[in-house]
């Protein structure tokens, strides 16, 4: 028989600590712990039960009830007005809206889970409303863009992607190329401009990105200054645009020369010289930053 020295309450004979304040029960030498019958014969399970709480259940039930009412109302309205043939889009849109809200509540409240579910549901919705004439017209392009967005903005944040950065980068590059192939196939019916224009332009873009990453990785300081990032973006983008112009002009006219990107290229050169100057010359950098403030 023991008493808690903190709370002053009498404890069960088998108690090893006070359930109120967790103070351990220390028995004097020679005294043995008793073996009283526990309050409940089974120990507590490891965790609680599955299920959703009252509020979430209420919201889901309300959505379902309102969905049924809306669907019946829409169907009857379309039927009485003689527009039953056009009822698919309103009926389907209402059902999808209900599904989106319900899934948002039921699914795990994490960025990856929610973004994945919403990407899938929006894709189904777009494919659904596009398939009204039994074929896909525009929805595949939009869905492709959504998939690309998911790979770049959602998948890359997962633990799996972070564990394999090289594979993830390759997957990202492959999906960008795959999406361009898909657009070419959907628009022209076969690969027309992909090999002569898109592939070399993408090559320039990836090469530029790879070179700059290499440059940043070999740096001693881990922090990358904002000016360098702007500089990097400008260079890669201007190079890509220039490459696009060259390959497009060659594809359309058979000539290797710059067309519309000439003015862009000139502007880029001026900006590049300025940024190189800022990066290289401390005096110039001070002129734009602390020098001005101090004076």
């Amino acid at each position: 028989m023991a008493y808690c020295i903190q709370c002053g309450v009498k404890l069960e004979e088998r108690a090893r600590e006070c359930p109120l304040c967790q103070t351990p029960v220390i028995l004097p030498p020679g005294m043995e712990r008793g073996d009283s019958e526990p309050l409940f014969p089974q120990p507590l399970p490891e965790k609680g039960t599955e299920g959703i709480n009252k509020t979430s259940k209420g919201i889901i039930e309300l959505i379902l009830s309102l969905l049924v009412v809306s669907e019946i109302t829409i169907a009857l309205t379309m039927w009485f007005s003689g527009n039953m043939a056009y009822s698919f889009i309103p009926l389907f849109s209402t059902a999808m809206a209900a599904l989106v809200i319900a899934m948002a509540l039921v699914a795990k409240h994490t960025y990856v889970a929610q973004a994945t579910i919403h990407t899938i549901l929006v894709s189904i919705y777009l494919l659904g409303i596009d398939s009204i004439d039994n074929r896909f017209n525009w929805s595949l392009i939009v869905v492709g863009a959504l998939v690309l967005l998911w790979i770049s903005a959602v998948f890359t944040t997962t633990k799996k992607a972070k564990a394999h950065p090289v594979l993830t980068t390759l997957l990202l590059m492959a999906s960008i190329l795959g999406y361009i192939v898909m657009i070419n196939l959907l628009v022209a019916g076969s690969l027309t401009w992909f090999v002569p224009v898109a592939l070399p332009t993408a090559g320039v873009f990836f090469l530029g990105v790879a070179l700059f990453f290499l440059m940043f990785l070999t740096r001693k300081r881990s922090r990358i200054p904002l000016a360098d990032l702007v500089f990097f973006n400008l260079i890669v983008l201007f190079l890509t645009f220039t490459a696009l112009d060259i390959f497009l002009t060659h594809y359309r006219m058979g000539l290797w020369r710059l067309n519309w990107s000439l003015s862009l290229f000139s502007a880029a050169m001026v900006l590049t010289i300025l940024l190189v100057g800022v990066t290289v010359s401390r005096r110039l950098r001070r002129y734009f930053t602390s020098q001005n403030r101090h004076s």
């Binding site: 309450v9 009498k10 069960e12 090893r16 359930p19 526990p38």
Partner: peptide
């Protein structure tokens, strides 16, 4: 008022 406590909280069963 003397109080005697018992529980089903897990440490009791360890």
């Amino acid at each position: 008022i003397p109080v005697e406590v018992s529980t089903n909280r897990t440490p009791e069963y360890k």
